[in-house]
Computed example of a mutant assay.
Amino acid sequence: MAKSDDQQDIPVWAYEKIELKNPDPLWMDKGNQEKEELFHLLSRFGVKQVEHIGSTAIPHLPAKPIIDLMASVSSFEEVDQIAERLYLHHWHHVPPELDKQPWRRFFVKVKNDKRTAHLHLMLDGEERWEKQLNFRDKLRENPHLVEEYANIKYKLAQEFQNDREKYTEAKAEFIGKVLRE
């Protein structure tokens, strides 16, 4: 099927299928490497903390093999300079009008046309920061939650294999339940 004119400039990685992989202990090491590299790249912009979040930050949890990270800044004023700096290291800025998440600026690290990492750049004090950490930490502490989340993820990955947004939205109920506990 030929791409329409509107789709000519859309990168291959933007529409990757959702493929969950068995837990890989190396994800923690990769997360730490990415954290260190991002801290080094972004500290000049006032970033004081980078965190490995998401499923690859939780031992024994199947995941898309994409390292999710978050970092905070005092404002988004320098996001263009941040994007230029990160681009030199294979990070691609997803413009807010495409990301549709006004609370963050989103970057995707790509290697061989595949996503390898995501960066959620947030403003200092963003409420999602603590929620991300709380969710990660609650799963790290509770193997039963990990098992339950794994089952949900497998089911949703099958159901929404070609729709990342719907896959993410469908996980929200479980995430909310964990955060309320």
Rank of each mutant, 00 (worst) to 15 (best):
I18H: 00
L86F: 05
K138E: 11
R180K: 15
T116A: 05
E148K: 00
D5C: 10
K155V: 06
N22W: 03
L88T: 13
K171Y: 02
V178R: 03
K30A: 14
N22T: 13
Y149K: 01
A150E: 07
P96N: 03
D113L: 09
A172I: 12
E147C: 07
V73R: 06
L123K: 00
K30R: 15
S75A: 10
K64N: 06
D29L: 13
L20D: 07
L41H: 04
L145M: 09
R104T: 12
E173C: 07
Y87P: 05
K114Y: 14
K64E: 12
D99I: 10
K21L: 12
V79E: 09
K100T: 15
R85W: 01
K64T: 11
P62V: 11
I58R: 01
K114P: 01
R105K: 13
I53A: 11
H60F: 13
S75P: 00
L86V: 12
L26P: 00
H93S: 07
A150F: 03
R164N: 07
L20K: 10
E173K: 08
T116G: 02
P11A: 04
E36D: 12
A14F: 11
L42N: 00
H144E: 14
E34Q: 04
V94Y: 12
P59D: 09
R128L: 13
A170I: 07
V110N: 05
A117D: 13
L123T: 00
S4Y: 13
Q101T: 10
E126R: 00
L139D: 11
W13M: 02
G31S: 01
D29K: 14
W91Y: 12
V73N: 03
K177V: 09
E37D: 12
G31T: 02
H40G: 15
N142F: 08
E130C: 09
Q81T: 13
Y87L: 12
E97H: 12
R104W: 09
L41I: 12
G125C: 01
E36R: 08
E78G: 00
R44S: 10
S74K: 01
E16T: 04
Y167L: 09
R44L: 04
P11R: 02
Y87N: 14
P95K: 08
T116W: 04
S72G: 02
P65L: 11
W13Y: 08
Y87D: 13
K30S: 15
D6G: 03
N151S: 11
K131Y: 06
K35L: 09
I175A: 03
S55R: 03
I67D: 01
D29H: 09
